[in-house]
Design a binder for these strands. Structure first.
Lengths: 231, 231
DNA sequence: CATATTATGTGACGTTTGACACAATCCCTT
DNA sequence: AAGGGATTGTGTCAAACGTCACATAATATG
């Protein structure tokens, strides 16, 4: 792993080069406080900016929201949530990769991949106080922010703006999930792979083919043969 | 169609018996004002009660919300929305059946079936002002309530309670959609049919096998053979 | 009630997919 | 640079699925 010490936007970051599958490199900001700089409380407020195209939020509301966040560093393979546990947090990925998966007939079924600048939780468990029916695991080291569900619900009550942000975020989530469902129903395995190739080529660099295959609803071997047919 | 004149909860209803597929009958409340009773403005406020298990709403907020609704009677086969149109409304089904579908390789792909006491819209088109990528059609006559999107967004701004209701409704929608996606990825066609049989047996009475097959992501013939194997 | 229309069941056949076994390659560690 | 574990590719075969064609059953229409 090549390490560059470039300072970026904030003085509180290293700029790392993370090696990905296929000899590709990706810039990932790893949050580290540097000892010889003045102490300032880090905050996810800058990262939330990347979400403003989905839902708007004023500076004041962003500060209020960010104030309830706590930082969490993760290494590769950490579990944020395991099946059967009660999900207590909503996470925001500053850097790092995550996946959601569950077991079916002793096989892992990957249902989602999540990268920088996205929120992530098990909403059913968080909201309905039921045991989670899938795991959330990191697949690359990184830095997250998290909010406890009690804080989240309080923020919703305190700030109509944050409540509206939450609703708009959910609208976005639902629309994406609905599109994903339609996509699964109408496309055959080859069409599904081709559309990933054209619309999310980065996904192929960040998840293994084995993981991708269950996401596409096909076996590892079939995905391998589709790739051969297309090359 | 057998017609019974039983009066139910409110004096403003007939109680109808609708004939379904397979010589089954279903009770459906058809909203009709009876001439010899005092004139009262009908309202969806009673029906919204059936949603309180999903999201809470005070009487005041319910009245405010219901006040913006307009009634719409539909007959079988009416289109609420066609591909390419901009969705302007969110509907609430008081009675009647609806389906969402689109075309792929000249075939109809059914992506959802909706019955009494549910909201229904094309959220992507409604929210993002883009042309709809699927149709919404009634598959049985009935009575709907609808809200224009401008009124909906105004209600969100006027009432924090309605905004919270909207958010909670979206949480519910997203959770259900996510479950549906996971279900599609982990179950094979036979498992999918069996789970419909055990968890939504009414669905089999209300939609045709042809419609159900595309919902399960398989061909009409395969579904027919699965049914034979299981009998 | 008779007929037309639509929905569902089934046979035949070619294609696709999954499962298993194993080979080749990649990648991480030392 | 070398070794070892993980990932990916591929050969073989059986099972599942889709498509086409047509039969049968259910439903709608007059």
């Amino acid at each position: 792993m090549t390490l560059c010490m470039n300072k970026v936007k904030s003085n509180y970051f290293h700029k790392d080069m993370l090696k990905l599958k296929g000899n590709k490199y990706l810039h990932v900001s790893i949050f580290k406080k540097i000892n010889d700089l003045p102490v300032m409380k880090p905050s996810p407020v800058h990262f939330l900016q990347s979400l403003l195209h989905i839902a708007s939020l004023s500076h004041e509301a962003r500060d209020l929201f960010a104030g309830k966040a706590t930082s969490q560093k993760v290494k590769k393979g950490d579990y944020l949530l395991r099946e059967g546990q009660h999900c207590q947090y909503i996470w925001f990925i500053e850097s790092g990769d995550c996946r959601a998966f569950h077991y079916h007939h002793e096989k892992e079924i990957n249902t989602g991949f999540y990268f920088e600048n996205t929120f992530l939780t098990n909403l059913n468990s968080l909201r309905n106080n039921v045991p989670a029916d899938y795991n959330i695991q990191t697949t690359a080291a990184g830095s997250l922010w998290k909010w406890h569900k009690d804080d989240l619900f309080l923020l919703y009550e305190q700030s109509p703006e944050i409540a509206a942000f939450g609703r708009q975020w959910l609208e976005h989530l639902f629309i994406e999930q609905e599109k994903h469902t339609h996509w699964l129903k109408k496309n055959n395995p080859e069409e599904r792979y081709l559309s990933i190739l054209s619309t999310q080529p980065d996904l192929l660099q960040r998840v293994s083919l084995t993981q991708l295959s269950s996401y596409l609803g096909i076996s590892r071997e079939t995905l391998s043969r589709i790739r051969r047919r297309l090359s």
